[in-house]
């Protein structure tokens, strides 16, 4: 399917990536007319389109993922022939290729040195500085990666991608307030992204599970984030899943100590009745989604299989505790 080659292959499942990369020999058989020497054929061959080069870029990434380094190299060569070696995006792609084909850490260190050289010559090269940050992560130099990412975000604070990467990095280090801050920045750029709301809810939930000092504040905030994500996207499985988790925890916390404390967000704690109702709603909705998706009802097929299984497992946990 050519259409999926037009999208960035970052989130493809392994099967799809493999299928895409297997088309490589067919797609790469003829060099595109824009870079091939002039021939009479170019008169009636199709004009050059941006989609063609997007396909090359995505095909290259899929090929690297599945180990077809020859095709990836061919893609890279043709892209270089068309756009020149000085193109910022191509510099990053070439670095990606070198990273993927590097055999040991020493080779990766060499690539890192090259990135440093490029950035010393031109500090505003965003694609390469992003690659450098990712490479630092690969080499397990997390503090350095965080410092570099901070520098990037200081120069470009409206980059949602970098902020969410930052939040992931902080989360991996257990720095929850910083991770939450970074996710809030993402929300300031894309206020209606329901997946980001759900993500912030998840991070808040994790933060609430880890430290016991302010867990209830984080929990109610987390619950409200999940509510917002469902409000923005009907039948959002991830949102309902989070809503059920948080309300379960909140119910047990609220019944234990009923003192009403002002939460960190400045909003009062939700009262027990509302939380109970929300819990019921989430359970009912999850059950409905699991049932309908299992029956393959029209309009309900879009859910990922692992998500459905996880939801089923969460529901089973509930019934197990009731029967016990």
């Amino acid at each position: 399917m050519a259409s999926s080659l037009l999208h960035s292959p970052a989130n493809l499942s392994p099967q799809v990536a493999l299928r895409l990369s297997q088309q490589a020999p067919l797609l790469l058989r003829y060099p595109p007319s824009a870079i091939s020497p002039y021939s009479i054929r170019s008169l009636w061959s199709a004009a050059e389109t941006p989609e063609l080069w997007a396909t090359y870029e995505n095909l290259m990434q899929s090929c690297l993922r599945t180990g077809d380094e020859q095709s990836a190299h061919l893609c890279l060569e043709r892209l270089t022939e068309r756009f020149g070696a000085g193109n910022e995006r191509l510099m990053a792609l070439r670095g990606l290729f070198q990273e993927a084909t590097a055999e040991d850490d020493a080779a990766l260190e060499r690539v890192l040195g090259e990135y440093k050289k490029i950035l010393a010559a031109d500090s505003s090269n965003m694609p390469v500085s992003k690659r450098r940050i990712v490479l630092l992560q690969t080499l397990k130099k997390i503090p350095e990666a965080i410092a570099a990412l901070n520098q990037l975000l200081d120069a470009s604070p409206t980059d949602a991608e970098s902020w969410s990467e930052m939040s992931d990095l902080y989360l991996s280090q257990g720095l929850y307030p910083q991770a939450i801050f970074a996710l809030e920045e993402v929300l300031l750029i894309t206020p209606n992204a329901w997946n980001m709301h759900a993500r912030l809810g998840e991070v808040l939930y994790v933060a609430a599970s880890s430290n016991d000092g302010s867990s209830e504040k984080h929990l109610s905030e987390s619950m409200r984030r999940f509510c917002r994500s469902i409000e923005l996207c009907d039948d959002y499985l991830r949102g309902f899943y989070g809503l059920k988790l948080t309300t379960d925890r909140l119910l047990s916390a609220l019944t234990q100590n009923s003192k009403i404390s002002k939460s960190e967000s400045g909003l009062p704690q939700p009262d027990v009745k509302t939380v109970e109702k929300l819990n019921e709603l989430a359970t009912a909705k999850l059950t409905e989604i699991v049932r309908r998706s299992a029956n393959q009802e029209p309009g309900w097929e879009g859910y990922e299989q692992p998500d459905i299984i996880a939801a089923q497992e969460l529901l089973n946990r509930d019934t197990a505790s009731i029967t016990r």
């Binding site: 509510c227 469902i230 409000e231 939700p270 509302t274 929300l278 709603l281 909705k285």
Partner: peptide, 16 residues
């Protein structure tokens, strides 16, 4: 703040 009262809004709109 958008999240103020979001749980009541949600309970009103989403019906199972």
């Amino acid at each position: 703040y958008t999240l103020e009262g979001v749980e009541d809004r949600l309970l009103k709109t989403v019906k199972v």
